[in-house]
């Protein structure tokens, strides 16, 4: 049976049949590792992040990396054309990806990308929103909750000021943006379930 890992972060979504499942999994790991490293580098540049305990930094990154990548790569989802461009540069149609077993998760990713893009965030707003997503005090396993909460609150305050300043006539824009965090959490859970099913298979 051919193994298909149709993740936009996978350089080789349709694995060579001669490869063992272990080799396919290792190729996949090598494909997404640079993106994960970029998320870590991004986190290091969030003022106050490096002052958190090492364990809390790891906990936040483990829990939030998918969500950060989803925000960062939302532009790979072309809602109008119904296509997804993988990091390899190959563009797949929604229909083809559904044929590879990417059903509900993909639809929800498209929906999220469309909603996020409709907010037309500036690069600065997007970067700050991504920092707020990463520094989420409600991730399980946080040791020093107070420190993470304080950092998240200060990031949210700056984001609110920034969003209000760039679009003072639209008071709901900030609320809409914060609601995207809940959408990201849903996507994260769906993605985790998908990963588990691959591993079990």
């Amino acid at each position: 049976k051919d193994i298909v890992l149709a993740c936009p972060m996978n350089m080789f979504p349709q694995a060579e049949p001669s490869k063992t499942p272990q080799e396919i999994w290792e190729d996949f790991s090598l494909s997404f590792t640079p993106a994960v490293r970029e998320v870590v580098e991004f986190a290091k540049h969030i003022p106050g992040f490096s002052a958190l305990s090492e364990n809390d930094q790891v906990t936040l990154l483990k829990a939030g990396t998918f969500e950060v990548l989803m925000v960062r790569f939302a532009s790979l989802f072309n809602v109008k054309e119904q296509t997804v461009t993988f990091i390899s540069g190959t563009t797949y149609s929604l229909e083809a990806l559904k044929g590879m077993g990417m059903g509900g998760l993909l639809d929800t990713m498209f929906e999220f990308s469309e909603k996020l893009n409709s907010l037309e965030l500036t690069a600065e707003e997007l970067g700050l929103f991504t920092a707020v997503v990463l520094v989420s005090a409600d991730r399980s396993g946080i040791e020093n909750l107070n420190s993470v909460e304080l950092l998240q609150e200060s990031l949210i305050r700056v984001l609110r000021t920034l969003v209000s300043k760039s679009n003072p006539c639209d008071a709901s824009r900030f609320t809409k943006l914060l609601l995207k965090m809940s959408d990201l959490r849903t996507l994260n859970n769906m993605h985790s379930e998908k990963l588990l099913s691959f591993r079990i298979d």
């Binding site: 790991s29 090598l30 997404f32 590792t33 640079p34 994960v36 490293r37 870590v40 580098e41 290091k44 090492e54 930094q57 790891v58 990154l61 483990k62 829990a63 990396t65 993605h191 985790s192 990963l195 588990l196 591993r199 079990i200």
Partner: peptide, 27 residues
Amino acid sequence: FSDPASNLGLEDIIRKALMGNLEERPE
């Protein structure tokens, strides 16, 4: 395997990157 992040070896990649230990991908 109850933790997808562990399945992916995410913690190892994150810890290495946090410590600045960026091993290059072998060709």
